[in-house]
């Protein structure tokens, strides 16, 4: 553990995981909003919206995340000049958030859509029958029930997102996996220990997350 006894190394380790948490947090919020909106599009009666939702899911779900993150950097930033912050790290961070969000939104969309399918048709019919509009029906009756059904799958999406955040290291953000690579390069005698610490930290973050979502799903389940 002499590697992490060095203050500079320890700080790099901490800041690497802080980037991961910040990437996960921002992308989770954006992907959730975007994903729910896309799911609403995919079940809407408007063909154009349905087509848009389907196209989004098919494009982003089937493109490797590395390519999407690369595109955000080389396409959006280098070629098209889209700069999201003056600070280099912050710019890479936000480009990473954009890439992670559009990618993860497609998985959120499909999870929510499958949740919508667990809500019996009669629920929406009853809502329409008392005079709720399409969006009221979705917002007040269908999505709250669908949401409870997708808590557990969304937990899996969140866990995948957190691990996927390491890919933002490929465009120069010093997140955990980039820090790990640097530490391994300069400490060839402690490769296994370094690896175990980083993997262990992910496990320490994500295993409780999984249990939390499992508990939440049980608690919120709709009794039929």
């Amino acid at each position: 553990m002499h590697v992490f006894a060095d203050q500079a190394n320890f700080d790099a380790y901490v800041s690497g995981f802080l980037w991961i948490l910040k990437l996960t947090g921002a992308a989770a919020v954006l992907a959730l909003l975007l994903g729910v909106l896309l799911a609403a599009f995919r079940v809407s009666p408007v063909p154009v919206l349905r087509g848009f939702g389907t196209a989004w899911v098919n494009i982003f779900r089937n493109t490797p995340l590395t390519l999407i993150i690369f595109f955000c950097y080389f396409g959006l930033f280098s070629t098209l000049g889209l700069s999201l912050a003056d600070d280099l790290d912050l710019n890479n961070y936000w480009l990473g958030v954009v890439g992670l969000s559009v990618y993860t939104a497609s998985f959120v969309c499909e999870a929510v859509r499958s949740g919508i399918n667990t809500v019996p048709n009669g629920q929406a019919e009853a809502a329409r029958a008392i005079g709720l509009t399409f969006f009221q029906t979705l917002r007040i009756v269908v999505l709250p029930q669908a949401g409870r059904a997708v808590v557990a799958p969304l937990g899996s999406v969140l866990i995948a997102l957190c691990k996927n955040a390491t890919i933002v290291g490929t465009i120069g953000l010093m997140e955990s996996s980039s820090v790990m690579k640097d530490l391994i390069n300069s400490n060839g005698d402690a490769v296994i220990a370094i690896f175990a610490v980083f993997a262990g930290t992910f496990a320490a973050l994500l295993i409780p997350t999984g249990y939390f979502f499992g508990w939440l799903a049980n608690r919120l389940a709709v009794k039929r």
Binding site: Q123, I130, G131, P144, Q145
Partner: peptide
């Protein structure tokens, strides 16, 4: 303005 009652009740489960 038209009330409807269904065979399967369809009360809002949540």
């Amino acid at each position: 303005e038209v009330g409807m009652v269904f065979q399967s009740f369809n009360l809002f489960a949540h």
